[in-house]
Amino acid sequence: MSKSKTQSVPAKKSNQISVYENLVERVTTGDTGEFFMEVAQLSKFTINFFKNLFRPSFEFRELMRQCYVAGYKSLSLVAITGFIMGVVLTIQTRPTLARFGAESLIPGMIAVSIVREIGPVITALICAGKIGSGIGAELASMKVTEQIDAMEVSGINPFKYLVVTRILSTTLMIPVLVIFADFIAFMGGFLGINILGDVGIRFYFTQIFNSLDYNDLMPAVIKTFFFGYFVGLVACYKGYTSNKGTEGVGQAANSAVVIGSLCIFVIDAIAVQLTSLLGK
């Protein structure tokens, strides 16, 4: 499609101009154009977030409510997922390690893989599904029913009240949920080991903490703040800018999960690269 548009540029124009026009045309139309428009709007949304974040007055009560919704109400789901993660990981890796007579390494293996990778990523994905879709759908439905406009005309800043509090809550709560999920996963791992063996809880946890160091913990914790921030940002952006009626509500929820999950993988890939570069 863009090829035919390239051909439609008049031949009399100089090469430089036609290349420029072609580029502008490609960037501003079709899928590419939409993508760049979306990136530009998301950047504007991000700038707006930071502007409102530091501008008084602060919505502490709403922030606490959102932390409760995002954090406390996700505890059970995160706990079940974490527990299963621990059990499955232990049961799956045990035969391989047993073949090499390295069963004693199981706690260390669980600790490193859960803390560094599996815990943060799986928990963030669960949160993108549960919290992200909730925020996306809620804000989109508020937009459709003019509730956001109603806030604006009554002199309340809806961006500060709805968006800033939600993004902050996911940024703060997802790291807490990840730490909680990690701990529950260790408990699951302990159960997994004891299904076929007999390991004391003190020995198990001593092995776990001995195999973890600063380089395992810090990068993992730091990246979870970014996971939380992007889950909240994408969900709020999609919900707050939704404009296609009730169809838009579904789309906002869907995009919040899909793009949020994609962001988690991209951030994780960057974090792994940075960690390995800094670790050298």
Partner: peptide, 14 residues
Amino acid sequence: RKKIGFLFQHAALY
């Protein structure tokens, strides 16, 4: 805006 009230078509209650 505080001096201008606005009643929305579908009330727009939160």
